[in-house]
């Protein structure tokens, strides 16, 4: 059974049409990555899936009682609102100190619980958002450009963390990302969005699709080369520690390639 299924989504923000005729679904346990140029409606699609945006046409069906974990692109906390990390994790459901600590540990934000949210760095903030999202034991984890503002090693580490979380919780993951080369190696399915779904499927299939190339053009030649390279490696080691290897290779090649 599909966890989330969207059919014929039509969304306009103000006068501006953002999504047209978009079909989308999430199966249990899969990692889906949404790629697309700026303004292609990636964030709007995620926000429609969580129910924050009402589509003008089409509908979103969720498995009844579906538990969502959502990591927004950014979160602005008003300076007049005092909030420690531990208190933030307890919204909207009260959690015990031990639960909070475990979630922070798993998201790689170990000793931050007593800190005010306003004093966190960009990377720490993202990890705290991730910790909060996994506290509800989500069946689907939705992340909107979660590695924005992280450097390459930082974002690679972040994606590994997400892999581990998926492995433990068995949740599906829906990500929006710019970082094609990193993300594609870790995805089961890639959806290429530009107001409508241009193409989708297995990462390799999408990377070779004409629509994908038309959108990302010459700028991603390096990334595609990287991707293919990684992909073979990932296949070689797919069963045990493929992701670590993908990560390592990504690094080597990013260093040499550019």
């Amino acid at each position: 059974m599909k966890l989330i299924a969207a059919q014929g989504l039509q969304v306009s923000l103000g006068e501006h049409p953002v999504l047209q005729g978009v079909d989308f679904h999430v199966d249990p346990g899969e990692i889906v990555t949404i790629v697309g140029p700026n303004g292609s409606g990636k964030s709007t699609l995620l926000r429609t899936l969580i129910g924050a945006v009402k589509p003008q046409a089409g509908k979103v069906t969720r498995k009844p009682g579906l538990r969502l974990g959502y990591v927004p692109q950014k979160l602005q906390i008003d300076a007049t609102l005092p909030l420690t990390v531990a208190r933030f994790l307890s919204l909207p459901h009260r959690i015990s100190r031990a639960e909070g600590r475990a979630a922070l540990e798993e998201a790689g934000a170990g000793a931050l619980e007593g800190r005010p949210m306003s004093g966190l760095s960009g990377g720490q903030f993202q990890r705290v958002l991730l910790a909060r999202a996994i506290l509800g034991k989500p069946e689907v984890l939705l992340l909107d450009e979660p590695t924005q503002g992280l450097d390459q090693p930082g974002s690679a580490a972040f994606y590994r963390q997400i892999e581990q979380i998926r492995a433990r919780l068995g949740c599906a993951v829906v990500m929006v990302s710019h970082e094609l080369h990193v993300v594609m190696s870790a995805s089961d399915r890639v959806v290429c969005l530009n107001g409508h779904v241009c193409c989708q499927g297995h990462p390799e299939t999408v990377a070779q699709a004409a629509e994908y190339r038309a959108l990302f053009g010459t700028g991603t030649h390096g990334a595609l080369a990287l991707y293919r390279h990684e992909h073979t490696h990932t296949h070689d080691h797919a069963h045990d520690h493929g992701h670590d290897h993908a990560h390592d290779h990504h690094h080597d090649h990013a260093g040499h390639g550019h």
Binding site: R47, I50, G51, A52, L68, G69, Y70, P72, L75, I77, L81, L83, F88, L91, P92, H93, R94, G136, L142
Partner: peptide, 19 residues
Amino acid sequence: WQALLTATLSPDLAHASGI
């Protein structure tokens, strides 16, 4: 209280939690 705080923090986070 809890729902108000969550909605104040971010309407999107509230939606994702069913508020």
